[in-house]
Amino acid sequence: MKLYITYIFMLISGLSFAQDKDKERERQLALESAKNYVYEGNELIDADNYINAEMEYRKAISQAPSVVAGSYNLGNTYYDKGNYEEALYRHTEAAKNATSKIEKHNAYHNIGNVLMKEELCKEAVEAYKNALRNDPNDDETRYNLAIAKECAAQQKQEQDKEEENKDEDKENEDKKEDKKEDKKKEDPKDKGDQDKKDGEDQKDEDGKPKDEKDQGKGDKKEDKRQEGQPKPQPGQLSPQQIKNLLEAMNNQEQKVQEKMNAEKQKGAKIKTEKDW
């Protein structure tokens, strides 16, 4: 019985070992295949055949994502074509799958380059820092980091100024709105004060309306005139009417006299042209 159990255990162990060996063999084959695809892609890049090179790099990634060269070189291909979004994705993929410091350094360095093209300077600073953590002696990365820092500082200064201008514009707009509100509040009061002032101008010191007082004066004056003179009887002219009539007759007579004198002067004019 013990021999039987031992035999079964050895059989299972053998099968497991064989399966692991098969898996390792498959992994090695996939790695070799991926490397071959990368090699073919590199050859096509040298021949400026970017389309087919992209296809080979994609095959390499599909066969073995751990082969960082596939993602890395594909990212470089997209970078050269100006497709920075896809280039960033592939270099990030390479940085994630990288196992050595040199691979991580190269991936992060290129991520920084892509971010600088996208004018994401603050993010580029962090990418270059990650690259230097894996290779502190790379002078090119240090130089790019200095440029990225300067760019990030300038962008921050411009952003702060823009925010300040927005705050000033908002403050000015609020002031305008406050003035409008104040004007709306003041207008009814001013109108009421003006109406009150106009009303006071229409009254005298006794508090009565001026028009009414003047009308009262006119009435009194008319009554006084009528009281000082005898009222005309029906069918008779008043003394004032007689006076006005005499003055009109004199004026008419004077006009007639002036017209006759003018005719006399006209008749004495010397003619210079002969009549036919």
Rank of each mutant, 00 (worst) to 15 (best):
K59Y: 11
D182H: 10
F17T: 12
I8E: 04
R133D: 05
N251H: 14
E168C: 04
Y128G: 00
Y128K: 01
M10K: 10
E43V: 09
T99D: 06
T77F: 06
P234K: 14
R142P: 07
N83K: 06
D178A: 15
D46E: 14
K274R: 13
I5V: 10
Y72C: 00
L145T: 03
E258H: 07
A30I: 06
Y50V: 06
L15D: 04
N172A: 12
E56S: 10
V256D: 12
A47I: 05
Q215Y: 09
G199T: 15
E200K: 12
D160W: 07
Y78I: 01
E200D: 08
I8V: 07
V68F: 02
Y79V: 01
K210C: 06
Q240R: 09
K170M: 06
K213G: 03
E200A: 10
Y143F: 09
Q28N: 13
K274G: 12
S71N: 03
D135I: 01
E118S: 06
V38N: 05
E26Y: 10
D206M: 11
E86H: 03
L44D: 04
K184N: 05
A98F: 00
D20A: 13
E171N: 13
A148I: 01
N49M: 04
S238D: 08
E126T: 03
Q229G: 06
D169Q: 15
K213V: 13
D46S: 12
E54F: 07
G218L: 14
K224E: 15
D190V: 10
K2M: 14
I242C: 07
Q19Y: 07
S62W: 09
E227N: 13
K166P: 08
K96H: 03
N165W: 04
A127K: 00
S33C: 05
Q215F: 11
G192K: 14
E26I: 13
P232A: 12
K96Y: 02
K183R: 12
E24Y: 08
N144C: 01
I51K: 13
A98C: 00
Q226Y: 08
H91P: 00
I61P: 03
H91R: 01
E181I: 07
G207K: 03
V256Y: 10
K23C: 04
